[in-house]
Nucleic acid binder design. Structure first.
Lengths: 331, 331
DNA sequence: CTGAAAGCGCTAACAC
DNA sequence: GTGTTAGCGCTTTCAG
C-alpha cells in the first residue's frame, strides 16, 4: 500500500529533470548515454514504471488494444481467449473492459468513449447493440446485434447454423419443434429465426406461432417462455434455443416440470460454450468458433491499425452441429 | 473515427464553465437545477462520456476493479468469469489487463504499477510470480506462484489434489508413475510434487527420479520432458501432469510416439480447464474450482476495499478428481 | 545535451 | 450558483 514512484521521484533521485527521465525511459535521442545509464539505474532501483494513464493522456498512442464486453460471461470469455492468442506475439498489451454497471443501456458507447479518448489504440466490441459510434480509433465488431453496421464485422453463420439444427431435429423425426428466440431486434436472433422457419418450410411443415417464444438470451426471460410452451397440451417434442444459456435454462425448466430430456423433449442450443458439454445430459448445440472469431477480429483490427485495407471487412465463419445427449427421436 | 466530445465541448455548447459541467455530470451540490438540466441535455445530445483516464488522474477513485493476468488463457479466462459473476451486481466496472508483452518477467509489478496509479480502485492478480509489490490499492492474489506472500490469497488445495490424482493411478494398478512438474520455484507446483511423492510413499513405492520431469506449465518445455521420459525402455505406465495444458501436450507426444492413451499410458492433469473435457480421449484431471476462485477473490477484495477486516485472508478451496478417458489400468 | 513550460481532460478548492 | 485556478503524471516543443 505504498505510493508508487513517479517520474518526479526518479528525476529527483537521479538529479535530472523529469523531461530527461522521460526521454531516457522512452529511448529518445538527445540524451548523453551516461545520463541514460544513471537514470535507468534509478528506475530499476525504485521500480519505476510509467503510468499508463498519464502517458496515454499526453501521447496519442499506448500500445494497448481494448476488448469491450457487456459482461465476462462464457461467450465473451472465449472470444477473449482467441484475441489473446492472436495478439500473443504482437507488441500490444490487451485490456478487456466490462462496463455495463454504470448504465445497462448503451454500454458500448460509454465504454468506448471512456477508453478511446486515449487509453487504447484500437478496440474490439463484443456483441454490441449500438454500433453507430464515433471513435478516434479503429474498431471491429464481433457478432453485432444490430445492423447492417458500417463497421468491420466478424460473426458466424447464424442462419446456416439454425438450418442445421432444425433439420437435425426434423431428421430425428420431430414435427412439433419450438424455438426460443433472442430479442426480436437482434441480428443473430433474426437470422436464427429465419433458419428455423426455412427448415420447417422446406420440410413442408407450417409453423405454429405458439411454439415460438422470446427469451432475450437471458435465463429469466427464457424461463417464462419455456414454462408457457411446455405447459401446453400440445407442447413441442423438441425446442431449438437461440443460444446455449437459453437451452440450458430450458433443460432446467423441463426437469422441474417432470419432462425427461431427451426422451420427452429434445433440446438444442447455439454457441457451444464450454459449459454446454458439461451439463447432464450434455447439450446438443451448434458450434460457433468463438476463439476463431476473436482471433479473426484481432487480425482485422491489426490490419486496420496499420493503415492497410483489409482483405474483407465483413467476415463470416461457418457453424457446425455438435450432437450430444439432449436430442433423441420423439417418444 | 470522429473526435469524441470533451467536457470543454459540452461547456461551450451549454454556455457554462467546465467546472459546472463536471459538477452537473457528477451530481455535486451547488448547481441550479435548471443549469443541470441544460447541461445534461447537451451531454445527451453530444453523446458525451467522461474520460475514464482523465477523471482517474484527478480523483482518487474510479469505480473500476482490475484483474491482472499474464495472458488470457483458459485458466485466467475461467477466473475472469468468476470475478465477473461476483461483481455483476456491484457498482464496479471490471477491467482485465494482460501486460506480459512489454516485459516477460515481472509483468505483475509492471501492470500493477501502470494501472494502480489511479485507474483501478482495487486489483486481483492471477498466478503472480512476484508478490512483493507495493500498491496504493487493495490487492488479492489468486494462486500465487511464490510465497508465503503477505498478500491476501485465494487458491486451491494443490497438495490434496495431487494426492487424489496419484492415488487414483495407484488404485488402477500403476506402479511406475511419472510426474511432470511446473517450474520448481512455483508454489502450486511444489505442493503438487509433494502430494505425488506422498502418495507414492504411502503406497510403499520408492520414487524413480528419472520419472520426474519439469515442464514449466508450458507446452514446449513439457514436450521435451515428455519425449525424454517416454523414450525410456522402462517408461512409466502413467503420468501425472501439474496442469491440463501439460497433460494435453503429453497426450499429443504419446500419440506421436505411437503410444496409445489410455491403453499403454494413463495421463492425468490438473485444473479441469474447459478444453480438458473436449480432447479425444477426454482428459482425466483434478478439478480446480476456477470460477469460485475468482468469485472468492472478488468478495475478499470488496471486503478489503470497504475497509473491513476479512474473515479469512487466506482462502483454500477443495479440489476434486474428475475421471475421464485418459486413464485405465496398466496393460 | 538538458531543463523549463505548456497542456492532455478532468475534478476540487476557492473566489466571485 | 458559477467561474477561476491549480494541478494529477506524463510527453513534447523550444529555449538555454
Amino acid at each position: 500500500m505504498k505510493r508508487r514512484p513517479t517520474i518526479t521521484d526518479v528525476a529527483a533521485a537521479a538529479g535530472v529533470s523529469v523531461a530527461t527521465v522521460s526521454k531516457a525511459v522512452n529511448g529518445r535521442y538527445g540524451v548523453a548515454s551516461e545520463t541514460v545509464d544513471r537514470v535507468l539505474a534509478v528506475v530499476a532501483e525504485l521500480g519505476y514504471e510509467s503510468s499508463l494513464i498519464a502517458s496515454s493522456m499526453r501521447s496519442r498512442t499506448t500500445g494497448v488494444i481494448g476488448v469491450l464486453v457487456a459482461d465476462f460471461e462464457p461467450f465473451s470469455a472465449e472470444i477473449l481467449k482467441g484475441v489473446g492468442e492472436a495478439l500473443r506475439d504482437s507488441r500490444y498489451d490487451l485490456l478487456a473492459y466490462s462496463g455495463s454497471h454504470g448504465a445497462a443501456e448503451g454500454w458500448e458507447r460509454r465504454s468506448l468513449s471512456r477508453l478511446s479518448g486515449t487509453l487504447v489504440d484500437g478496440a474490439i466490441m463484443v456483441t454490441p447493440t449500438v454500433v453507430n459510434v464515433s471513435t478516434e480509433v479503429p474498431l471491429v465488431a464481433i457478432d453485432p446485434h444490430t445492423g447492417p453496421a458500417d463497421l468491420p464485422t466478424v460473426e458466424c453463420d447464424s442462419y446456416g447454423g439454425a438450418l442445421q439444427a432444425t433439420r437435425y431435429l426434423l431428421e430425428l423425426g420431430h414435427t412439433r419443434i419450438g424455438f426460443i428466440a433472442g430479442r426480436p431486434d437482434l441480428r443473430s436472433s433474426i437470422a436464427r429465426d429465419a433458419g428455423y422457419r426455412r427448415a420447417l418450410t422446406d420440410a413442408g411443415l407450417t409453423l405454429d406461432p405458439a411454439l415460438v417464444g422470446s427469451g432475450s438470451y437471458q435465463p429469466d426471460a427464457v424461463r417464462v417462455a419455456a414454462v408457457e410452451m411446455l405447459r401446453r397440451g400440445d407442447r413441442p417434442t423438441a425446442i431449438f434455443a437461440a443460444n446455449d444459456i437459453s437451452a440450458m435454462e430450458i433443460v432446467k425448466v423441463a426437469a422441474e416440470l417432470g419432462i425427461d430430456v431427451p426422451r420427452d423433449l429434445s433440446v438444442i442450443g447455439f454457441d457451444d460454450i464450454p459449459e454446454a458439454s458439461k451439463t447432464t445430459p450434455a447439450l446438443t448445440t451448434v458450434r460457433q468458433p468463438m476463439q476463431t472469431l476473436g482471433a479473426e477480429a484481432a487480425r482485422l483490427l491489426l490490419t486496420l491499425m496499420d493503415g492497410h485495407a483489409p482483405a474483407a471487412t465483413r467476415v463470416t465463419l461457418p457453424t457446425r452441429l455438435v450432437p450430444r445427449a439432449t436430442t433423441a427421436p420423439p417418444a
